[in-house]
Design a protein around this nucleic acid. Structure first.
Lengths: 331, 331
DNA sequence: ACAGCGCTGGCAAGCAGTTGCCATGGGTTG
DNA sequence: CAACCCATGGCAACTGCTTGCCAGCGCTGT
């Protein structure tokens, strides 16, 4: 019942264990004919390398950890899917960790996994920059939707996307905007605000920032109420979930969207197209984000050329999706 | 830079490595005072057990694999979340695998992970019963939303839920139903059909089955068109995604919902409440499914009392959520 | 003809723990 | 006081694979 080991294969094939080992993990170190022979015998015996034994000496685990700040947010699904797909295609295993929006849990889980994975994918990490740098010093890591100097990352463009969004609102006649921000330690949130503020300034609009708000549907109510007090005619919510919550609250209060106010979100989650009114949002191809991040990580993990080349900071294009929640500003 | 090993700890603490090892993995085998001492020294040194070395001899990996038939389906999100949470709380790591609706990929991934995990969670597995039994013979495994004799499983109740759904439609005056089925090798789909058919018979309604349909929004169009040809006044779609696709197609064809026909789905995904009209659906607490499955798996993995007690087959309650896509039958 | 060289394959020492078995020693029992 | 027991710690073999180093071998260049 015990599964066969390289010893069994070596004995059957009449070679040393080192030859078997190399046939699998370092093919060019063995002559083609020997390797073929070994592999055939291995197949006949139903041999499968033991990943733990392998990891023990080689320190390579063929495993990646993906840490997500909040698995509840549907926007991560696509990212996870892209990452899983890419990892699988390179025979890597993906470990999924939910940080539940808590830096403590995030840190805890990371340190628990340090020994067992080849690298980390941190999606929307809530950790401070210094923690990230520290981690980056000892482990391969790639940031998703977050940037930090010296660490490779993949983000969706915010700058140009936000400019387009603000321009869209401006063209509809809105001159007073309000930005309903996300969590305090969210890089994305800070970044979006900066981009929106700059765009507004450039286009001569005023914009105020409110928040932070927990970006869930249920917290949209408070955000909507607060936004209404500002007299702004366009609300830019931190993400689609929050925006949907805002829409609900506005509907409940009898405020017309987009008749009285316009609302937009971020991420273009599946539900954005289904809610009423459907939601104008700044999205992107999230699966590509996950895919690209894994690619960067595999690259980083394979060549520990720490010094030299600067880490890649990929910026993928975002795209503004216009739907029915934005319209001309009320008189 | 090398992280400390039990040897370092043993030397520092003045004990044998076995004592250090046992202090961590078999506490009661060491006197309290020795253990305290060892643990303190270990902490000072920053020692962390190496999971691979541990797995090598003990054959316990503290890792669970969750194989999902289609990660794209939002309904799995909640299940994954529940499972991740429960696994984490027992210091288990969750590996996520997407089978992409392909039995081949599913099998491939499972065999790749056999050596590296303590057990499998198969969500809506598309594998034939015999493959499952075979796997169950050598590994701990728990089925989610699927049952097979001799294998522990957790499912959402279909029988009673479907009865309620059919009764709901009957009470609205519908007498001719159509069931738009899911994938051919989906246990859930077969099971739902059986429950619906029995309920319909019991209540004196006629129901026809169509399909299989790939349960995505984009395949809802064809399903809607096919359903319309039957003359049925109520469409029961395999899941919410398909139902949403059906709603879209009906809207495009000018068919009123629920004026002309009623539509219902399954799963109660987040978007079900947001689409127009909002969707009547048979859902349940999916996070509980994931949680319960992990619990069963941990139990099974810890006590390999293969013989004796029959495997647990948990059935969690489903709940019928009435929304605006179902209404009184036309004419 | 001989030194030098690049391929290959084997040897054996790790990697970092776990665990069966034995030795010790203080406490208990007859 | 001898016999026995159990709790505790140590020894060392073992897990399955990787890899640095060495040796044999057939070639090439001089």
């Amino acid at each position: 019942m015990q599964s066969p080991t390289i010893y069994d294969v070596a004995r059957s094939a009449g070679v040393a264990t080192s030859t078997v080992s190399r046939s699998f993990s370092n093919p060019k170190r063995v002559s083609a004919v020997t390797r073929e022979h070994v592999l055939r015998v291995a197949r006949e015996l139903g041999y499968e390398p033991n990943p733990h034994a392998r990891a023990l000496t080689s320190r390579r685990t063929q495993t990646l950890a993906m840490v997500v700040s909040d698995i509840t947010n549907p926007h991560f699904f696509e990212i996870i899917r892209g990452a899983e797909l890419r990892a699988k295609s390179s025979a890597y295993t993906l470990v999924l960790v939910n940080a539940e929006e808590s830096p403590r849990i995030e840190e805890e889980q990371i340190s628990r996994l340090m020994r067992s994975v080849d690298g980390f994918l941190l999606a929307a990490s809530r950790l401070p920059d210094e923690s990230l740098s520290q981690l980056a010093a000892s482990h391969s890591l790639v940031l998703l939707n977050r940037q930090a100097t010296g660490i490779p990352s993949v983000v969706l463009d915010q700058r140009e996307g936000c400019r387009q969004l603000v321009a869209h609102l401006a063209s509809l006649g809105h001159s007073k905007l309000v930005c309903l921000s996300g969590p305090r330690n969210s890089w994305t949130s800070a970044n979006r605000w900066a981009a929106i503020r700059d765009a507004a300034e450039e286009l001569g609009l005023t914009v105020t920032r409110m928040g932070p708000y927990t970006p869930t549907v249920s917290h949209g109510g408070a955000a909507a109420d607060a936004a209404l007090t500002t007299g702004a005619t366009a609300f830019i919510a931190h993400n689609d979930l929050l925006a949907i919550g805002v829409l609900r609250r506005l509907a409940a209060r009898g405020v017309q969207v987009p008749g009285d106010v316009s609302v937009s979100g971020f991420d273009d989650i599946f539900a954005a197209d289904l809610c009423t009114p459907s939601l104008t949002t700044l999205g992107g191809v999230h699966a590509d984000l996950g895919r690209a991040a894994v690619e960067l990580l595999l690259e980083a993990a394979s060549s520990p050329n720490r010094t030299g080349t600067a880490p890649q900071q990929l910026v993928l294009p975002s795209r503004l999706v216009l739907r029915n929640s934005t319209g001309t500003a009320a008189g």
